[in-house]
Write a protein that binds this DNA or RNA. Sequence first.
DNA 1: TGTTATGTACACCGATCTGTGTGCTTAAGG
DNA 2: CCTTAAGCACACAGATCGGTGTACATAACA
Lengths: 203, 203
Amino acid sequence: MTESEKGPTGRRRGRGARERILSASQQLFREQGINRTGMNELCAAAEVSKRTAYQHFTSKDEIVAEYLRRFDPSVLSGVFDRTDLTPRERLLAAFDIPPTTPLCPYIAAAVELHDPQHPASQYAREYKKAVAARLADTAREAGAADPEQLGEQLALLIDGAAARTRVLDADAFPTAAAIATVLIDNAIPATTGDDRRREEVSS
Amino acid sequence: MTESEKGPTGRRRGRGARERILSASQQLFREQGINRTGMNELCAAAEVSKRTAYQHFTSKDEIVAEYLRRFDPSVLSGVFDRTDLTPRERLLAAFDIPPTTPLCPYIAAAVELHDPQHPASQYAREYKKAVAARLADTAREAGAADPEQLGEQLALLIDGAAARTRVLDADAFPTAAAIATVLIDNAIPATTGDDRRREEVSS
DNA sequence: TGTTATGTACACCGATCTGTGTGCTTAAGG
DNA sequence: CCTTAAGCACACAGATCGGTGTACATAACA
């Protein structure tokens, strides 16, 4: 017990204030939205005094940007590293994220902040491009005719499923997965180097 | 000149206050977002006193709901009535809305209001369902094997294009249209009753 | 023991927001 | 002319927001 517990009365010393703030923001910003979560509420949830919060971050905007950067896209990033799946299966696995979040936080941030110049909006843009790029890489690996195009198409399907899930309050990812299957089958001619079913070319 | 001009000094009498408020909301809510547009600003743009505004609407939420209801989806609704196009062409024409709005206002409202019970959120849900239904009708008309599914898929593509356009700040509708083409070609077997190319079944 | 970070508790500032209260002005209709 | 409806200008209430100032408490280190 070097430190890391907390003083008998005040001043908690576990994981530092930064971590608790960002951790609380993960929950509150996603549950209630960014604009509807005030700093008082955020600090209370993080069990951190507001004064301390503003010694770690210069503004709420900075917290928002860092919140997006720290958002763990474990589902997506994990998909691309699964060596137990064929490239084709990896592309499809990106749609197996049923009960995750009310809405992709990158889209939500872009809409809520409403300023393309906001650091968080810029990061959202970068992230979305990165996802499309990784999808394109995997598509190339799977032998797609036009990997860039397929990557962009699959990325659009993911965003469409996220947006539609939010508006309709019903899971739209199965529909997106169905479209993805069609696109992948169409873009990867059975002749090309996908790992299985290389001989049974048609039907 | 019965009325409809305006008094020499005060009190404008053209189209009534309601119309001007809703008209201004169309511009401001879409350009700046709902939450970032205050009632003072809205009333100033509508050239209506705030007092008058609150005699026509009980709250801003009511204005928001009515704004969504009055939003003219001329592009989409117009598409379905174009008898000069084949059903198949009508399905594709739904993606020819390049330089319209920064983001589908229905998605934006659902995200900004962040309350599925809000009247505007409920209407957004209804509208999105209605669009999918009309797409399904058209798909059925075009002879699709599973019209409901194709309608839902195309609706997802539209939402995906809208969301992605907003986040990336680049038009994603061409990509969506490309996917739509594939889906439609896949769902409507050339043997079925599409109006042209009925004989040249393959190649 | 004393110093220095680090944190807390809490009041507070200024801005902005939705919504009202009040008194005045104008147009329409008899 | 007088009444009634509609609107305007403007101040203001009450709440919330992001962010600060201040005084005090604790832990680590010298």
